[in-house]
Each structure stands twice: as C-alpha cells, then as structure tokens.
Amino acid sequence: MATGGRRGAAAAPLLVAVAALLLGAAGHLYPGEVCPGMDIRNNLTRLHELENCSVIEGHLQILLMFKTRPEDFRDLSFPKLIMITDYLLLFRVYGLESLKDLFPNLTVIRGSRLFFNYALVIFEMVHLKELGLYNLMNITRGSVRIEKNNELCYLATIDWSRILDSVEDNYIVLNKDDNEECGDICPGTAKGKTNCPATVINGQFVERCWTHSHCQKVCPTICKSHGCTAEGLCCHSECLGNCSQPDDPTKCVACRNFYLDGRCVETCPPPYYHFQDWRCVNFSFCQDLHHKCKNSRRQGCHQYVIHNNKCIPECPSGYTMNSSNLLCTPCLGPCPKVCHLLEGEKTIDSVTSAQELRGCTVINGSLIINIRGGNNLAAELEANLGLIEEISGYLKIRRSYALVSLSFFRKLRLIRGETLEIGNYSFYALDNQNLRQLWDWSKHNLTITQGKLFFHYNPKLCLSEIHKMEEVSGTKGRQERNDIALKTNGDQASCENELLKFSYIRTSFDKI
C-alpha cells in the first residue's frame, strides 16, 4: 500500500482533458527560462521544448504516446526543470519506465491550478516501474492521483506527508504495488545497510526511497516546507523545498512566496507586481503582455491589467481597466465587458449561442446573426445582446428569417469595421425574408467608422429604411451602385405612401 494514499474509496472516473512563447529569463536562482504550460502528445517531438525550461508557468501534460519505446527515452533528460506552477499529468506514455532521468531536479509542483483537485496525476502508464522524482520536495496545493499503472512499484516507500501538507485526498490505487509483488529495495538494503531515512506512518517504520538508488530526502521537522541542505541544516524561511546553503534567500532552489532578481522575498516591493503567484514583474512586463494579447485571437491570451499590486489576466467583477495605466478602477454604474472572439468572429444561430455573449459591452471581433427560429426570440436576444455598444469588426445579418427588427441591439452605437466582410463591408444584410426595420432612427444613433453597407434580398425592408441608415451611420456616399439592390429590397412591402385627393359631386333626387 502506498504510504499516505487512500484505498478502496469510491472515486469519480478520471477524465483526461485534452506555445513556446518565453516569458522571460528567471535569473540567477533558476538555471534556465520560464516556459508556458505545455500539452505534449502523440510523439516526442515537442518534448524537446523543455530543454531550457527551469519553470513551467502553467501545467505540463505528457500523454497518448503509443509508439514510443524505452530506448526512445534513454537520452532524454531535462535537468534544468525545477518547478511547475500548476500540475504534472502523465497518461498512456508507452515505453517510459521512470522519471528519474527525465526530470531529475523537479523540486516543486505548486498546484496553482489543479487537474480535478490533483497536482500530480500518473494514470495508465503501462510501462512505468517507478516514479523516480527523487528531488520532489513540495506539492504546495492539491493532491496526488496514481492509478492503474500495472508495473509501478516504489510507492509504499514514499512518505507523501513530507511532500504535501495533507495526504487525506491522495488516491493511489490499482498499481502493481497493490499486489505486494514489488519487493522494493532501498539503497544499501541488499548489503544489509540502512542508507535512507525511515519514518513512521500508520504504525509502520519504513525506509523512504524513490528507487533502488535514490533515497527520499527527509528534512528535520523544524525546517517545515522550506527544505534543508545535504547536511540537514534548514533553508531560509522564504525558500521552498530545498537550498544549497542554509538561511540564505539567494540560495533557495525555489521560493515559498515570490522570486525577485535572484532572491526569494515575502512580497513584491514597489515598483514590482505579483505575477502568477510566484514571481515579481515590473510595469513594462505587464504592459507588454497586455499589448501582445490586445489584437491576438490565441486562446488563453489575456490583456493583463494591474489590481491590488498584482498583474492579473482581467479586472475583477465591479472594476474596469483604465487604459492609460492598466489599473483596475471601480465602475460607475454597470461595468464594461470586452469579449474577445477566439477566431475573430462568432455566429449567433440560437439563443444558446447568444447567451455566451451575455453582459458583453464591447465585441472584439465580428458578429454573424443567422437565426431561423426560436421561442420568445426578441426578448431572449435583447437579454443577451442588448448591452453590446461596440463591435470592432463587422455585423452580418444573414438568412435570419425569424427577425423582424434589429432593435434587440438596443445599445449598439459603434461598428468600427477594423475587419470587413469580403474585404469591403462593415454591415452586411443578406436574404432576411421578414426583416422590416433596422432601428427606430428617431431614437437610435449608430456610427460606422469604416467599410460599406450591403443589402440584398431583404424583400420587406424598404429602401427608405436603408437610406436612413446611410445618413445616420455616416456611410452615405461610400456605397457603390450594386451594394444596395434596388429590386430585391422592399419588393414585397408597401414602401411608397402617396396622399390621394378626392373630389365629389353631391346629387339628390331633384338636383344634379
């Protein structure tokens, strides 16, 4: 039985969820670079991206490699990797027998973001014989899940209580170790020597080791999670996991709180800001991140802002960003909400898709409305799209047979046209069989910064309504002859009103 693990408890099935942008060198404390989270699957090609990484700022997932063999891993080693800020997950990587050479110096898994409450997941690794993470000293947050690894031993010899604050939620089941077939031998045991430290858990006094050649490092209890030197002297209180010299914040392997210019500090002093819960960055760093993602459509890219001495992905609820200094300031009234469309555009074809934009005031991208039916549609669209004030790209209304009016965009005031449909149009209306009105132009103002209007096959939309939009939106004169079809717009509506004058002759039985 794995020490510190839980057996036999019912657990939810383990679901495996399925960018080499360097964020800056980590400095003297770390020998390499800070790398983003990685999802490495199918083959070993991307694994080489770990070569210079000291910190993975995010998670590391290595999974679904069915053609790899043990010899493929023999020359692979990433000794610079010290810390993973989120979680480490391995799933069905064939041929991998140990992690001792792959990650010989991995010391800390912070667990800032977890995989279903777990910071370390080893699942269905069919050839893994031992973990071998002999320098792993601290899992700051989260638990361990090690399950269905039929060859995995050296679990009962690990004292997880020396690595985690609590072992109650560890789930370590259905491994070879369960069948008591392992016969784990710690260093020196074969020669009758006791080389590794022994600890007591559940009444068992057991030597602690990761492999037959690597003991588990056990520091004096007084050192807590700070770690200790090879001689057993406690590291500085700002260290986490390990250090090369005692009581020196510049000799830590990793930091308990924050890293700044080669030393570990309790908090980031001005003019620095907390970033990702582990390091200090200056304003320029946060500003660069903001600008890199301002026009990016890459998933996970955030326009970072500053709030409460932190550089964070977005302002919290009730705050909006001051564009001059990136500071989050309290909103006066309802907060603006910028919604970034991942692929640059979004099609609204149902109430469900409209709900995804609920509360958005600025759309960074283009909207395509293609709704053919739905219950209580006008009210639903207004509830979900009615706060949109600005669209950076274009607005396209296409084959939306259920629409009679666009009044559900009740606050839309600006279409920038930074991206144009077919390279020309910022407003595009095609084949809307029941569209009769755009907006009530006596109450609604709309500016279209650039781009043209396109109207074709809107049989109940009168040309007068379209011409009014040209005047109000500032697009009059931009359109070419064929942009607004004269014969297919309003051709099934009563669009022309003329005053009919009647004269009559009164007659009676005795007068003409």
Rank of each mutant, 00 (worst) to 15 (best):
P336G: 04
S77T: 13
M83I: 14
T199F: 10
S296D: 15
C252I: 00
G58I: 00
S77Q: 13
S143P: 10
E314N: 15
R74H: 15
C196L: 13
P104T: 01
P316A: 04
R279P: 00
I185F: 03
T189E: 10
R256W: 02
R92L: 15
G333R: 04
C280V: 00
E147L: 13
C219E: 02
P316W: 02
I201F: 13
R263P: 02
I163V: 12
P334H: 10
L164C: 07
D72C: 14
L136D: 01
H214T: 11
S98H: 03
N242M: 09
N150C: 04
Q245L: 08
G95L: 02
H48G: 01
N138H: 10
L131S: 03
S98M: 02
M38I: 10
N202D: 10
D75F: 08
N150H: 06
I306H: 02
F258D: 01
W210N: 04
R92S: 06
L63S: 13
V265C: 03
D86G: 04
L133I: 11
V200T: 10
E97V: 12
L44W: 10
T189W: 07
V200F: 14
Q276K: 07
S225I: 12
N242Q: 14
N325L: 06
E33W: 11
R113C: 13
D159L: 07
L240D: 08
G32T: 10
H290C: 15
R141L: 07
L327P: 00
N170A: 10
Y272P: 01
N195L: 12
L233Y: 06
Y273T: 07
E49S: 15
F66P: 12
R74T: 11
L152F: 01
I82M: 14
D75T: 07
C280Q: 01
N322G: 09
L240K: 05
Y118Q: 13
H307K: 05
G241R: 08
N257Y: 06
Q216F: 10
V305T: 06
D165G: 12
A156L: 04
D178G: 15
V305N: 04
P36M: 09
D248V: 03
P220S: 04
T267P: 01
E57R: 03
I163W: 01
L120F: 00
K224V: 08
A198Y: 07
D177T: 13
D288V: 09
L131A: 14
N295G: 14
V108I: 15
G188D: 10
M65S: 12
E124N: 12
V108T: 13
M125C: 06
T211M: 03
T267I: 03
D75A: 04
P246A: 14
L106D: 00
E33P: 13
Q204D: 14
Y87S: 02
S213E: 12
D159E: 12
G318L: 05
T68I: 03
E180V: 09
C215G: 11
L332E: 14
E130N: 09
K217Q: 10
V253Y: 13
I82A: 07
L326P: 05
L81P: 00
W160T: 01
N202V: 04
H307Y: 09
Y272A: 01
P197F: 05
N117C: 04
R141A: 02
P249T: 11
P220D: 14
H236T: 02
G95V: 02
H28F: 13
F66H: 14
Y154R: 14
N117W: 07
R279K: 06
C35Y: 00
E231N: 04
K100G: 10
S317K: 03
R74S: 06
T140I: 08
F258P: 00
W160E: 01
W278H: 10
N295C: 06
H291R: 09
S98K: 03
K193C: 15
I62F: 06
C153Q: 08
L240A: 07
S143V: 07
L152I: 10
Y304L: 04
P269C: 01
L260A: 08
K193T: 11
G183V: 09
E57T: 04
K129A: 11
K310R: 10
I163A: 01
S284T: 08
V34T: 08
N138V: 08
G232I: 04
C235W: 01
H48N: 15
K251V: 08
M83C: 09
G58V: 00
Y273H: 09
K129G: 04
V55F: 03
N175Q: 08
T329P: 02
C268V: 00
G203Y: 09
A198E: 15
H307S: 08
Q61S: 14
K224P: 08
I122L: 08
N135P: 03
N42R: 06
P104L: 01
H214M: 14
S98G: 02
P313N: 04
T85Q: 11
D177S: 03
D169K: 11
D178F: 09
G333Y: 11
V265I: 04
L90W: 03
L332W: 13
K251P: 00
E130T: 04
K217R: 11
G333Q: 09
K224R: 05
V265G: 03
V253S: 15
N43T: 07
C286W: 03
H226S: 05
V281I: 10
E180N: 06
P36C: 15
T211D: 10
